[in-house]
């Protein structure tokens, strides 16, 4: 009897242990199947070391080079739902840009859609990194990535930042205070001349740009020559100081992803902000 009781005392932990093992097994054996509908999410996922989990990305996802081999699911506003479904993902990361009805349709097909809010600042980008990391079970990698990106930002910003006009696309398309690009300019030691505008992207009237007289101009498309050919462009403080910046990586700077921070550092150098760490 004594002996029998002895075994029984050990019985309950065995099924518990088995249960834990069984529950944990699929996590280990079967990798996640993830679809990213935004280039920035794709870059974040690779930054978290989870690139292997990706089974599909948007047509715009072209970084890192490994994305070339991944299945493409169309653009991020209207993803090709059948294509997404056929990839049998267990998680789809959709951005604020995505059409709400396509998210709903994917959910109704039994696919988990994680809709992330639009990033309006560097802090917003960190929030996205943390959300994606949590979703992929890589919280530690998420914190590591945030620390790495934070380290790229200048510690001390200039007291009198340069006035910056950022042209994302020719024809005066620029970013207002609601865009992360405004924050990127601030973190690089500049000040977006349209930072007070309560909107994301808009077409600025050229006359307004002339009036605000930026001390630096960032062109993400078009050439310096084309820019200076505009009426009175040569008289801008930026043109006189030779601060028409065309050397930023367009994709990297216009996506709220990890590469933006390298570009911020580069822009800081171009704007003449002293490296605070020296």
């Amino acid at each position: 009897m004594k002996h029998k009781k002895h075994i029984a005392a050990y019985l309950p932990p065995v099924p518990l242990l088995l249960f834990i093992l069984l529950a944990a097994a699929p996590l280990k054996a079967e990798a996640k199947r993830v679809v990213s509908l935004m280039p920035s999410y794709t870059e974040i996922i690779f930054g978290l070391g989870a690139g292997k989990d990706l089974v599909g990305v948007s047509n715009f996802c072209n970084w890192p080079p490994e994305t070339a081999k991944l299945e493409k699911t169309g653009d991020y506003m209207r993803p090709n739902l059948e294509k997404v479904y056929s990839l049998k993902p267990d998680t789809v990361f959709a951005g604020a840009w995505a059409d709400a009805s396509s998210s709903k349709q994917l959910s109704s097909m039994g696919i988990k859609v994680v809709s992330l809010p639009e990033e309006k600042s560097a802090a917003g980008i960190f929030a996205t990194v943390r959300l994606i990391a949590a979703e992929l079970g890589r919280k530690r990698e998420g914190e590591k990535l945030v620390r790495k990106l934070t380290a790229l930002m200048p510690v001390k910003l200039p007291e009198k930042p340069l006035k910056v006009y950022l042209e994302a696309d020719t024809g005066g398309w620029t970013a207002g205070g609601e865009s992360f690009l405004s924050d990127a300019v601030r973190l690089a030691g500049g000040r977006n001349i349209f930072a007070e505008e309560k909107r994301g992207y808009f077409q600025a009237a050229w006359e307004e740009v002339l009036l605000l007289d930026p001390e630096a101009v960032i062109l993400l498309s078009g050439t310096e020559e084309e820019f200076l050919a505009r009426p009175m462009a040569k008289g801008l403080a930026a043109a006189r100081a030779g601060r028409i910046i065309t050397g930023l990586d367009r994709d990297a700077f216009s996506r709220p992803g990890p590469r933006l921070f390298t570009e911020i550092k580069k822009l800081g150098g171009l704007l003449g902000v002293p490296d605070a760490k020296k």
């Binding site: 696309d169 024809g171 050229w206």
Partner: peptide, 16 residues
């Protein structure tokens, strides 16, 4: 490439 500024052209305007 450049498609955004071409969209703008298609929309019609006198920006530049």
């Amino acid at each position: 490439a450049r498609s955004f500024s071409l969209f703008y052209f298609v929309l019609g305007g006198l920006y530049s």
